[in-house]
């Protein structure tokens, strides 16, 4: 099925969205139930460990969203795919929101556990840099009037900024940091107990579905916004053309 055609994409995503939304609601219901009634409290951290079920999926999604933007940037620059630019632009505010969420939940978790809301360690700093890059990209998109040109400029910057992703991922291994090292995505298997792992993975699924729903909706909005812009430009053009003979008289 050729989704490069925006009209086909609109009808396909319109049919897909209710199902995705329903699945997202179900996953959140299951994930929140598992989080609050199945996952045990930590013997040291008590109930504050529940923050993890929001914090970790939000941080994963923050990075996945940037990865999707980087792939879309390749699609814009290399294959000139008409929807790649729409996808990247729609993903940026969502990614910024997830990054903000992971920073806020992380600092709220850090206060009782580490005794401080913020430390300048490698993981926190690199995620803050990711947040600033999201905001810079959004600013670049909003500053340029022509969406096509803005999309290309943002795509170049997105690809250059992709160097930050491996830095975030491996920052806890390369530097000695206060932030704990990876415990789920490891080559030798996860090191956390199944009663915590399964609720966490369910929440991650719920967050991913939420991202998909919001991304598709934002892409549909962006396509409609561009159609509106084309219509307005066309209408303005006809007005100018209609006014011109009078001006000549």
């Amino acid at each position: 099925m050729d989704l490069a055609n925006p009209t086909r994409f609109m009808s396909f995503s319109g049919r897909l969205l209710p199902w995705l939304g329903g699945a997202c609601a179900l996953a959140f219901a299951a994930g929140l139930y598992l989080t609050f009634f199945v996952a045990p409290d930590d013997y040291q951290q008590g109930a504050t460990v529940k923050i993890m079920f929001l914090h970790v999926p939000a941080a994963w999604l923050a990075m996945m969203c940037y990865s999707i933007m980087a792939i879309s940037a390749l699609g814009t620059l290399v294959w000139k795919h008409p929807l790649a630019d729409v996808s990247a632009r729609a993903a940026a505010p969502i990614g910024a929101a997830f990054t903000f969420l992971s920073l806020v939940t992380g600092s709220l978790w850090g206060k009782p556990m580490w005794g401080t809301y913020w430390v300048w360690d490698a993981r926190l700093t690199s995620v803050l840099v990711l947040f600033v890059m999201y905001l810079g990209l959004i600013a670049l998109w909003r500053t340029m009037e022509d969406p096509i040109r803005a999309g290309k400029a943002a795509a170049v910057l997105t690809l250059v900024g992709a160097v930050n992703l491996p830095i975030i991922k491996f920052s806890v291994d390369w530097w000695n940091t206060l932030h704990q090292p990876a415990s789920v995505m490891r080559l030798d298997g996860p090191t956390i107990h199944p009663t915590i792992l399964w609720p966490l993975l369910t929440m991650a699924l719920a967050f991913t579905l939420l991202f998909l729903v919001m991304h598709l909706m934002a892409m549909r909005n962006e396509i409609l916004r561009r159609r509106l812009r084309t219509l307005q430009l066309g209408a303005a053009g006809t007005r100018v053309a209609a006014a011109r003979p009078q001006a000549a008289e």
Binding site: T125, V129, V132, M133, L135, G136, A139, L140, T143, M144, R149, A153, V156, L157, V160, G161, N164
Partner: peptide, 21 residues
């Protein structure tokens, strides 16, 4: 990237700072 903008200087600084860290 900001060469076509009228007042790109401030945006330019915002875009470059994360990479200069």
């Amino acid at each position: 990237l900001t060469v076509s903008l009228r007042r790109g200087g401030l945006l330019l600084a915002v875009l470059v700072v994360p990479f200069s860290i």
